[in-house]
Design a protein around this nucleic acid. Sequence first.
DNA 1: CAGTGGTCTAGACCACTCC
DNA 2: GAGTGGTCTAGACCACTGC
Lengths: 237, 237
Amino acid sequence: MQKKTVNGAPLPAYEQIKRHVLAKIESGAWKPGDVVPSETEMVKEFGVARMTVSRALRELMADGVLNRVRGSGTYVAPRQYESTVLQIRNIADEIAARGHRHAARVLALEPSNDPNAIAALELEAGPVFHSRIVHLEEGEPIQYEDRYVNPEVFPDYLAQDFTVETPNHYMVRLAPIQRAEFRIYAQKPEARVRQYLDMEIGEPCLLLLRRTWVGRHVATSVRLWHPSSRFHLAGTV
Amino acid sequence: MQKKTVNGAPLPAYEQIKRHVLAKIESGAWKPGDVVPSETEMVKEFGVARMTVSRALRELMADGVLNRVRGSGTYVAPRQYESTVLQIRNIADEIAARGHRHAARVLALEPSNDPNAIAALELEAGPVFHSRIVHLEEGEPIQYEDRYVNPEVFPDYLAQDFTVETPNHYMVRLAPIQRAEFRIYAQKPEARVRQYLDMEIGEPCLLLLRRTWVGRHVATSVRLWHPSSRFHLAGTV
DNA sequence: CAGTGGTCTAGACCACTCC
DNA sequence: GAGTGGTCTAGACCACTGC
């Protein structure tokens, strides 16, 4: 295998193979569920020993990128949703997993020149895209979503119907999220949020702030308010 | 290498080596910072190829258990603290990292027969150990810690001085935490918590519930209240 | 310069899946 | 039974550390 270099240092063959596979997935050439070439095929393609291919694919499985089944083949793993605290899924899927109905009220979907939002997306200038949506579980509001989106990453964001598909689902469908940063607060909601979430006066919100990256771009910056009486975060490590 | 079996299935050699190393660390025979035997030595000890030892040690490094330095050797990694939302550290270390002073007020340290606590620790009967501590940052309360501890795992818990060392630090020092489960809530604090945390009426708490496991035992079940004005959780994925 | 870990090869045997 | 991944061997060359 020809040694490619990054800043002068040669990259190990197994690392080059990993990047090749990741590039295929990120470009969309290989989609979730697709079979990827077998070890034997990659051995021929890259001109390396089978152990080397095996290590590359094994590590990608450990990272959750691939699934491997002995006797069957190697498959592209399903997309990971915006992960917050380890594994919070798309709110609609989460509601569906509880056997409940999800609905969404789109309050706003428009361009915005909010300087704070432009800064959060690490852009020089606006406009950026802005949406405000209330998510309902069995008719009860459970999340107030205030989202800013990078138009360079999702140019068609404003043309979507978010009563049918959540923004999170839409974005994950189009681009793989590679990194996320989050902060969690307990907060007294401002009046508008409190009303949209149908909360009693004095009831606190669980507020989740999150930014996600696609490649070198900040893809989205979102604030999610949840009524404490109907929502909490959970996970294991 | 002699094949050991678990429920009839033979265990791969690299997996046996991993378990051997983990057992050494968990038993305390190898402590954080210690050099562990080199690959060459383990090759002789286990009678396997160097690649096999290499894989075992490489995977343990990926898990954060070992650190490996080319040209130097393989070392036991420092202990991981109770991880909550990915990487929240021991509150005292966190405060120290901000360059601030930590202090603790021990409100209670006693046996308890609270049936909820006994159930949370998955024990048949009590008593279990109970502590309530307020942690202060620069003199301001920042965490109210209500903790139940499994006496089978930490028999000397009640004899400790938690103004000197936090319970988390004490427990991590004695036993490696292997699994954790957490839930995060926004909550109106009860009067007692509000007073100990010196909070204004109406200010919400960020409440973190956590259980941690050592081997098959629930080691501890803890509720951590934080004033929202002075505390939030953060992390990256 | 001896010892360490990082990577790689060219084979091998095996358990398993799928047809 | 052909093809897949899981593991393993016995070598090898290399970059790096620490004396």
